[in-house]
Amino acid sequence: MDAHAEAHEHVLEIPYTVHPRPDTGLYNAKLGIWLFLASEVMLFGALFSSFILIRTAAPVWPRGWEFLNVPLATANTFILIASSVTVVLAWANLRLGNLKWGRIFIALTLVCALAFLVNKGFEYTHEFKEHRFPSTSNFLAIYFTMTGLHGLHVLGGVIVFSYLLLPGAKMWKTDRARYTNRIEVCGLYWHFVDLVWIFLFPSLYLM
């Protein structure tokens, strides 16, 4: 790369990474995450449609609550809802310039996410102990596939939040607004993960 082009790099930074573009009212990452979530809606939408198709065609369908651990899953539901609240609080604190509380709330979100995964792990090992595998029945196939995929989404959130909590937080010093935006964007993702669970929980455990 020649010096000439390099010199322009600073002048020609990508616009609207931090501040919204006036005519669209969005900054890039926010639009990006909305689009990404739209595609996620299609992903889980396809899975739910498959679920409905297979279930309506089935002559008998097991009742989830008869053998799944409903109390634990209920607890998990509240844990995820709580984490949705903490992530908003993290963002709100950063927005007010309060890094310390921002980080505390990010950490709390992380703790919730990990707790969720640990609980899910207990549930899985319990099913395996009882010899219930994805191949056992179509209900279990759907149960493991959908909760597994959802679990991967939670895991993704864990990785991103850990990054933002520790090494990523350096950005606070250099580009405070951008760091705050990142938390906002991840929060949107996190709400979506939460929402998916809120659909999964009743349709797998309660119906």
């Binding site: 498959s50 196939a141 596939t145």
Partner: peptide
């Protein structure tokens, strides 16, 4: 918007092939 359903389908087929499900 069109690719995610195929991703879902691919996951289901992987489950059928690897985990022995019957989607």
């Amino acid at each position: 918007l069109a690719f995610p359903p195929l991703e879902a389908a691919a996951v289901l087929q992987l489950m059928d092939r690897v985990a022995g499900t019957s989607f």
